Computed example of a mutant assay.
Amino acid sequence: MIEDIVKLKERGLTLQEIAEQMNMSIGKVQYRWNKYRQQQSPPSEIFAPPVEIKKDKWSMPYEYKEANACLIPHTHESLYVYWSFSNSIKNMAEHHFRTKWEELPNVLKLYDVTDIIFYGHNAHRTFEVDLPPMTNNWFIHCLEPDRTYIADIGTRTFDGSFFTLLRSNPAETSAAEMSDTYDEKLERWKHQEVTQPEWLENFSTYSYYQKIR
């Protein structure tokens, strides 16, 4: 299936046109296309330039690639998300809000983006969850099966509005008959039988702010 998507993309078709031609949802086409692109371009290990070695001296890289939010299918009505912040994001938030990082509210915002190209504000529906301090993972329950979601991890402005700091990859809740398979895989990963979730896909944090072509 991905071979057909790649061929149509090379002919200049947009993802929306490919979805219509292949009789698929735009969410599923986006998922497979981004999975293909991720496999073709492995992420670099750090943001900073390579370490310079001069006169037997060396310096640590300025920043490791820590910023990440990953959304994982769990069951037909739940998802699992985990995340980490880089020091630059923490410093930016502290400077912007003039508040220590540990004192900023932690908030998760979930978007239902099924069959749409997501621009950041055009989801079918959204909801927010206030998280306990120092949380870095969360299970999201009571979702609809066979829908596509994206999660933001952020904080609140002084007027109570949500402020995005990280954005996850899109993930789909499975059909009911698929839930046992996802449960098995997540349990294997949690008990370190595999090094990472077998269906884990990583995407650029900010890639879904822009129109995908």
Rank of each mutant, 00 (worst) to 15 (best):
E3M: 03
D4L: 06
V6W: 05
E10H: 07
R11P: 00
R11H: 13
T14I: 10
L15N: 09
E17I: 13
A19C: 12
A19L: 10
A19G: 10
Q21R: 15
Q21Y: 15
M24C: 13
R32I: 11
N34L: 13
K35L: 13
Y36F: 15
Q40A: 14
P42I: 06
F47S: 09
A48L: 01
P49W: 04
V51I: 15
E52F: 09
K54A: 05
W58N: 12
M60T: 05
M60K: 07
P61A: 03
Y62T: 06
Y62K: 09
K65V: 01
E66C: 03
A67P: 00
I72V: 07
T75A: 11
S78G: 10
L79K: 03
V81K: 03
V81E: 01
W83G: 04
S84F: 08
K90W: 08
N91Y: 08
N91K: 15
N91M: 12
A93S: 08
A93C: 09
E94N: 05
E94K: 04
F97Y: 14
R98Y: 14
K100A: 14
E102M: 01
E102Q: 10
E103L: 14
L104Y: 12
P105K: 06
P105S: 05
P105D: 05
N106D: 06
N106I: 00
K109S: 05
L110D: 01
Y111H: 15
D112E: 05
I116A: 06
I116D: 04
I116Q: 06
I117A: 10
F118T: 07
F118W: 12
Y119F: 09
Y119P: 01
N122P: 04
A123P: 09
R125L: 10
R125Q: 05
E128G: 03
E128H: 02
D130P: 00
L131M: 11
P132D: 06
P133C: 02
P133K: 05
P133Y: 01
P133G: 00
M134N: 07
N136C: 08
N136D: 15
W138M: 04
I140D: 05
H141C: 07
E144K: 14
D146P: 00
T148C: 08
Y149S: 03
A151R: 02
I153R: 04
G154R: 05
G154P: 00
G154M: 02
T155M: 05
R156D: 02
D159E: 13
S161W: 03
S161V: 01
S161D: 07
F162V: 02
F163E: 11
R167A: 00
R167H: 02
S168Y: 03
E177L: 11
E177I: 10
M178C: 09
T181G: 10
Y182F: 15
D183R: 14
E184G: 05
L186H: 14
W189K: 07
W189Q: 06
K190M: 10
V194N: 08
V194A: 10
V194M: 13
Q196P: 09
L200M: 13
S204F: 01
S204R: 04
S204Y: 00
S207R: 12
S207Q: 14
Y208F: 13
R213N: 14
R213F: 15
